[in-house]
Amino acid sequence: MWSYILRRLFFGIPTLLGVTIIVFTLLYLAPGDPISAMVPSDAPLEVVQMIRQQMGLDKPLPVQYWRWLTRVAHGDLGNSLATRRPVLNEIRAALGNTFLLAVSAAFIGFTMGVVLGTTAAFFQGRWVDKVASAVAITGVSLPHYWVGIMLIIVFSVTLNWLPAMGMQETSGGSSLWTLLRHMLLPSIALALIPMGVITRMVRASVLEILQQDFVLTLRAKGLWSRTVTRHVMKNAAPPVLTLMGLQFGYLLGGSVLVETVFSWPGSGFLLNLAIFQRDIPMLQGVILVLATFFVILNLMVDILHSLIDPRIRRT
């Protein structure tokens, strides 16, 4: 097992390198200039040139990439072009905030998805199935930034139950209760897509298992429906787990739109800002870290597969 994990991690390196090369190239192909975000448009040419030199932006693209990669190999993601703060510190703070949202959105989305999907499959064709499927399709179809704005209008502006933005009291106070209150609305907005996707996957997966012979055998033997359900769920789990891993990865990437709507200072908010400022080290850093998360999450899902389904052997 350990050699499998190490091998998978090793094969993750070319994936990460590929991602960084694509991002680096795309950023340079995109119109715009990081200097434009840093100084007024009528800044003297010599100052612009000096900043360009100081930031190493005057060097050819491969040289810039190589310099960046060498630094990364030493554990240094560089400094933000826009704020000059170390990229690593910025990412750490932002990812921590996004992680909170991702975990709570995953909890809401995955729980709802599994419950709705299983119920729909067991009651296939009946009104419960139709309602669950409608909820799932609505979750996937609604733009989550729109849902975010609607939640703010209803629960913050009209009912005044929950705060509309931020992650702590605007006057400065913070506590666990305050954090939970601030997290609820963005978590619900973020949970809708995973809930919809997982409901549909669980429903399809459970239906497929329900039609298999062993289920008929279990039922014929007169086993309790709870026991049958357990066997069905265990067999339906692998594809759902893969999907959950990917969905959690997306959630960790943060939602640019939801975090912007709720002014939540997470990785999506950071990415959005970095794109507008053409902050190359920041973008590269965030994407590298997120890609690493994806590689690790995929690996974890694979390991979980083998634990759930002994037929899959990882050697």
């Binding site: 913050s156 705060p163 509309a164 933005m165 931020g166 605007t170 400065g172 002014s263």
Partner: peptide, 23 residues
């Protein structure tokens, strides 16, 4: 006694924050 500056690039968020008394 104190000033708090809060970055809010999204106009609807600023509006909601004002109407809910957050700013």
């Amino acid at each position: 006694d104190k000033v708090v500056l809060l970055p809010m690039p999204e106009p609807t968020t600023r509006l909601a924050a004002l109407r809910t008394g957050q700013v």
